[in-house]
Design a protein around this nucleic acid. Structure first.
Length: 819
RNA sequence: GCCGAAGUGGCGGAAUGGUAGACGCGGCAGUCUCAAAAACUGUUGGGGGGCAACCCCCAUGUCGGUUCGACUCCGACCUUCGGCACCA
């Protein structure tokens, strides 16, 4: 009696054996070529959900595939452990963020082990441990020293009721505090930034890296480079030192059409320029705009409103007085925080001018223009009019002509502007890596000396529900002495954005036990850059852009010798539940644990890969998982039920059957290998299913020799090993093969053996399918044409018609175009 | 709103300019069984025709275009998903 497939028994057994044998321990000195397969590490949210499995299981399959191909594979795992939810747990449930996080780590590590992946746990990193964040702080000091970190004012969400800073996530739709419901406003704080904009141009380049086109496009749009002109408008206002306001425009050719100027409400000149009688209105408008989110402010659908502040600038090109307005569709963080209003040639300005009855002056004439008023903004090109000495010039040429003229006069210059802003890393929170800076009254900003790192998070911080950053009220933490002059001084109480922790964790995996450096240079040199980085598509822009910036920055500092951290990138799609992204706060989390304990890790791994293209993700639906379980059972029975050769098979039939078996085997190896390389897991599984179905038929007929059968089974098991590591190992052992299958080589295919002998030739008339003919693969064009023309199914469509064209696609079809 | 994707049987999907629906789920019929479950076998896009082997027409979100030929390329629109800088 054949034993039943029992994953509950074999999976723990092999996981234990592999661990005992240290099968997946990675050696740095292994002479084989290296392959670094990195999966984005999970945030320590508490439980591994099915979305995590969707990220981890397929990437493990690919890493195992590379391993069998003969690479020394590093496929590490760790935890992104700082962040907001830990602090929320502290406030809500009175549990310390460290305790909460480490409990989660323990649970998630256990869950991760159930996947049956090749993680080498000796290399695990946990970003909230001092031995890790010491080096996060160290990197901050490096960036600071090389002038890549600076302080500036920036707005934060502020709840006046709770007296606290809120994350965007904590602000409900309509701008209300999630905790108390009060209206959230923005408040400016002095904060730390990294100069990512210094690398804007380089970040737009993705030369030499194999990334999905859509991700590259998103990153380029995020950086948003735009060529234009900075124009100075003359300012002469009593009691104001500034003598100009700068604007950025991509359309200097329309400068003669300026009829107003718009400043961002946050613009520093607004307070100085506002006329006394306008003060109340302006301040009211500013207060309102401080409550709007950036998405709201930039929406092109929202009605543009604004307020005249009662002051003017002068357009130097024509000497005209131009009224200054403020409007919240202008952001302080883009360009110069000021735009010139050219209603005739910009849609937003047109709407704005209409609303407030501002003049609309045409300065670029549309080709069919009658000199009258415009129905809508004309944003195309034409001939310049009403533009002084530039009249008659085509507006495209006018862009340079006006810019050159302005530059000559010292009134402007060609410049490049970016949508990308510098990276704000300050967080007014406890649970993050402290920013290692000390403020001394005498010496100013003083970095913590490297020998004093890490700046430790105090364990006994208070998590008052209405407080600000707990560090701010922790006297022992705040009060220190200046490293330079030893006078009493205060520590920075903000911590770092967690994207900082995740910008270098992949370096740490190479040297996780090293306590004398952030990483060992020779180990990073041999492992990095990462060969294949996989993770959620939700990280397409921010994390991936920050990590690229970080590596470029430390390359220029001289710490690494490469500029791109991830050679190949693959973003899997998002698993959604009830049409929404899975998240604890939405309460729609699907845990894999029950599936794993009931059906086994191999079944869950396989199912997740089978449900569709990995990059697409999709709605979670477990209705098909039984198909995978059935298939694994069939594989078990197929391999373990002894093969019986049929006696009444002629030598000729046997020879044909064996040739066909070998062809199918080699075609399958080719398909599976190709699908693995191209990360097309769903059709890879389908190919394996087809192979297994075919083998079942072969077993039924018994037409091939036992040795031919064994050869096919051998290939099948090797092809299965990455996807179903436990099942493959068990079957490998039960069929008397040498432990471990995971140290075996990936099978090779022979192109000759895989070759088809026959093809189906499709015959079309005017592109419509009319017949199919099975013909030898070696058929010539002349033969194919003849067979096609002679087809009795095709003939009726050719009668009384003239063939005007014959199309032949070798190995595929013949198409007669008739009239 | 802006940026990036996706839309194909009852369902997940396959087909990357050349046979639409591979593979799987579900359904239906059968085998086994006292019965059921499991397992196995067959069948399964819609409509029409034929006793039958089969044949014809329609069909890839909507509308239009390019091409001998379009799920695939181009344009417009609709719907859904991801991101929008403090969730990570």
């Amino acid at each position: 009696m054949l034993a039943r497939y029992n994953p509950q028994e074999i999976e723990p057994k092999w996981q234990q054996r592999w661990a005992e044998d240290k099968l997946y321990e990675v050696s740095d000195s292994d002479p084989r070529p290296k392959w670094y397969a990195l999966t984005m590490f999970p945030y320590t949210s508490g439980d591994l959900h099915i979305g995590h499995w969707y990220a981890m299981a397929p990437s493990d399959v690919h890493a195992r595939f590379k391993r069998m191909q003969g690479y020394n594979v590093l496929h590490p795992m760790g935890f992104d452990a700082f962040g907001l939810p830990a602090e929320n747990a502290a406030i809500k449930r009175g549990i310390h963020p460290f305790t909460w996080t480490m409990q989660n780590v323990v649970n998630m590590r256990r869950q991760l082990k159930s996947i049956g992946a090749i993680y080498d746990w000796n290399r695990e990193v946990v970003t909230c441990l001092p031995e890790y964040y010491k080096w996060t702080e160290w990197f901050f000091l490096k960036l600071y020293k090389h002038d890549l970190a600076y302080r500036a004012k920036a707005p934060v969400n502020w709840c006046p009721q709770c007296q606290t800073v809120l994350a965007n996530e904590q602000v409900l739709e309509g701008g209300f505090c999630e905790r108390c419901g009060a209206g959230v406003t923005h408040r400016d704080l002095e904060q730390w930034f990294f100069r990512i904009t210094k690398y804007a141009d380089e970040l737009m380049q993705h030369d030499g890296i194999d990334w999905p086109e859509r991700i590259k496009i998103m990153q380029r749009n995020w950086v948003g480079r735009s060529e234009g002109t900075e124009i100075s408008f003359a300012l002469d206002h009593p009691g104001v030192a500034e003598k100009e306001i700068l604007v950025f425009t991509t359309r200097p050719d329309t400068t003669f059409g300026v009829t107003f100027m718009v400043l961002a409400p946050e613009h520093p000149l607004v307070a100085k320029l506002t006329a006394p009688e306008k003060k109340a209105e302006v301040e009211g408008y500013i207060a309102r705009s401080r409550r709007a989110t950036e998405i709201e402010r930039l929406s092109t659908e929202r009605e543009k409103d604004g307020v005249f502040i009662g002051a003017y600038v002068v357009n130097r090109l024509n000497g005209e007085k131009v009224p200054i307005w403020i409007a919240d569709y202008v952001l302080m963080s883009y360009g110069t925080g000021a735009v010139m209003g050219v209603p005739a040639h910009d849609e937003r300005d047109f709407a704005f001018a209409h609303r407030y009855n501002l003049p609309i002056r045409v300065v670029v004439a549309p080709s069919d223009w009658d000199g009258g008023e415009l129905e809508e903004a004309f944003i195309g090109s034409g001939v310049m009019v009403n533009s002084g000495q530039f009249d008659g010039i085509p507006s495209e040429a006018g862009i340079d002509a006006v810019t050159d003229f302005l530059a000559e006069k010292g009134w402007g210059k060609h410049t490049t502007s970016y949508r990308l802003r510098d990276w704000l890393i300050s967080r007014q929170r406890y649970w993050g890596a402290p920013i290692p800076i000390i403020y001394c009254e005498q010496c100013g900003i003083v970095p913590v000396p490297e020998k004093d790192l890490p700046v430790l998070l105090p364990e006994d911080a208070e998590f008052k529900p209405t407080g600000e950053s707990p560090l701010k009220y922790h006297q022992k933490f705040v009060n220190t002495t200046c490293p330079k002059c030893s006078a009493p001084a205060k520590r920075e109480t903000d911590t770092m954005d967690t994207f900082m922790c995740s910008s270098w964790y992949f370096l740490r995996y190479t040297s996780s036990e090293c306590d004398t450096a952030s990483f060992e240079a020779d180990r990073v040199k041999s492992w990095l850059p990462v060969n294949l980085y996989t993770g959620g598509a939700e990280h397409a822009v921010m994390h991936l852009l920050y990590a690229r910036f970080f590596i470029k920055a430390i390359r220029d500092i001289g710490l690494v010798d490469f500029g791109e951290p991830f050679t190949r990138l693959f973003n899997q799609g998002v698993i959604i539940v009830e049409r929404q992204k899975m998240s604890k706060s939405r309460g729609n989390v699907i845990t894999p644990d029950e599936y794993v304990s009931e059906l086994g890790a191999d079944a869950v791994r396989t199912y997740l890969m089978f449900i569709g293209p990995w990059e697409q993700g999709g709605e979670w639906d477990d209705s098909g998982i039984s198909g995978i379980t059935r298939w694994l059972n069939r594989l078990w029975n197929l391999v373990l039920t002894g093969y019986r050769r049929s006696k009444d098979v002629s030598p000729e039939v046997r020879q044909n059957a064996e040739r066909e078996l070998s062809r199918f085997t080699h075609q399958t190896i080719r398909r599976v290998t190709d699908d693995m390389e191209r990360i097309r897991f769903n059709i890879m599984i389908a190919a394996l299913m087809e192979f297994a179905n075919y083998l079942a038929k072969v077993a039924e007929t018994g037409a091939v020799s036992p040795s031919a059968w064994e050869e096919a089974i051998d290939s099948l098991l090797r092809l299965l090993a990455p996807t179903t590591p436990h099942l493959a190992e068990e079957l490998w052992q039960r069929t008397g093969r040498e432990y471990s299958i995971h140290n075996q080589r990936w099978p090779q295919w022979d192109e000759e053996l895989a070759k088809e002998e026959e093809i189906t030739l499709v015959v079309q008339v005017n592109g419509k399918l009319r017949d199919r003919k099975v013909v030898p693969a070696s058929i010539t064009e002349v033969e194919a044409m003849q067979i096609a023309a002679e087809s009795t199914r095709v003939q009726p469509y050719l009668e009384d018609k003239k063939i005007i064209k014959r199309i032949y696609v070798p190995g595929r079809l013949v198409n007669f175009v008739v009239k």
